[in-house]
Design a protein around this nucleic acid. Structure first.
Lengths: 227, 227
DNA sequence: GAATAAGTGTAACAACTGTTACACCTGACT
DNA sequence: AGTCAGGTGTAACAGTTGTTACACTTATTC
């Protein structure tokens, strides 16, 4: 498969797809797995937009960026990803099984490539692996659905209300945000000053109050009305 | 498992998850499957928001609506679904495995419930079923990703440009839309008159032209600039 | 073929959001 | 303590979109 020194450094237990495999079975799992190890330098291209996805790509070390370029050569969207995580696992089994983006290493990185047939075999043989795979996809679907729901709310007030209500445990009247204002604005896909203004408005109206990253919900009902 | 008259009417070959199973194996597949058949009348509730998802729900006949209600009892979002298709298959394996919505029958409908353990068994035993399941989830992820990309484009011009470019085969200069203006506006989550105005503007600028549902792209480069 | 529904084009105005620019605060680092 | 970067509050103005309303055209139905 590969030299043993490599295997020692591969940490699957933190990889979303494989972390369901019990610790005492992980070595056995790796040993019997048919895969390739890919070492890339900084700036090296791992996959190109349009390439057919023939294997499951697990980024086990390093970080990569993904870029989408249109027909005119312009770069449209960029996203960065850090190990450990699978790259585009959904595209392995999708009808259109081509990389939608260019994948480039941001630093020296290690990627494991598991051929599709091997993935299917393991899915059938190893229920932990199957659970992990299904769970990852399921979680991703939920994540995307949630985000989409947020995006279909048109006003910033609405998005903020939705976000706050969903981040406050029922019964609680406050929550601690895990993002700063800039990141929140990005999540909402709105401009940062616009978000700041909306927050200020809601505070003026006595609906919320905030100190640093803690938000107090003073009028839950009013918040619900905003969605 | 159930009376034979039922089985005759169950059409799995058009169900997204099961359609990969060869026709000559479908009967055998159904026979050995452990499942429950659920008949519901119009208006009957099939699942409630918050219920734990313990089985794969396949809507094989009829249609349902899904509603999300907030804590205040207000209905927020509604979506209709027609047979045959699975209901919330992602939630069966997700970390948070609860129905996010109320599911209500819109007409007399038939739902097959396959317990989670049985689904896992079949996934391990039947590679066609597994492929179908993975493919469905993968396609759904792609669909959601695409939609999300569309939503993060802030301007209507941008959304329209993105949509048109992605619905025109490379090399072609025209495409036939499969939605009317109202549906397109819903997809973009914008107001219908606003979309109409934007279309009119792009026509005035000589970038596109349209007759009924056929759109001609007169200046592809300008469209790309709009994204 | 008349009646009805569905879809589209358009306009004026209100409402909301983005842009840009700058002041201020805070914590980290030296 | 001083410097610097990151994060936040705020304001004026421009730009975009939503709202509402209505005319008009095109399908559909009986």
């Amino acid at each position: 498969m590969s030299d043993k020194s490599e295997l020692d450094r591969i940490d699957l237990k933190n990889c979303p797809i494989c972390n369901g495999i019990p610790a005492n079975m992980q070595d056995a799992f790796i040993d019997q797995l048919d895969y390739k190890v890919l070492h890339v330098k900084k700036g090296e291209i791992i996959a190109r937009q349009g390439d057919i996805v023939k294997a499951l790509y697990l980024l086990v070390k390093g970080s990569v960026k993904t870029e989408m370029t249109n027909e005119g050569g312009q770069v449209i969207g960029i996203e960065n990803m850090k190990a450990p995580r699978p790259l585009a696992p959904a595209f392995l089994f999708a009808e259109s099984n081509r990389f939608p983006v260019d994948v480039t290493a941001l630093e020296p990185s290690v990627i494991i490539q598991i051929p599709k047939e091997e993935v299917m075999k393991q899915l059938a043989v190893n229920p932990h692996f199957m659970q992990g795979y299904l769970k990852f996809n399921a979680n991703r679907t939920q994540f995307l659905s949630e985000k989409l729901k947020l995006m279909t709310i048109r006003t910033i007030r609405g998005k903020l209300a939705y976000y706050l209500l969903h981040h406050t445990a029922s019964g609680e009247t406050s929550c601690v945000l895990d993002r700063n204002q800039t990141e929140l604005a990005e999540l909402f896909a709105v401009a940062r000053p616009s978000l700041a203004r909306t927050i200020a408005e809601l505070e003026e109206e006595g609906i919320i109050r905030h100190e640093k990253k803690t938000v107090y919900i003073l009028n839950r009902h009013a918040l619900q009305q905003l969605i």
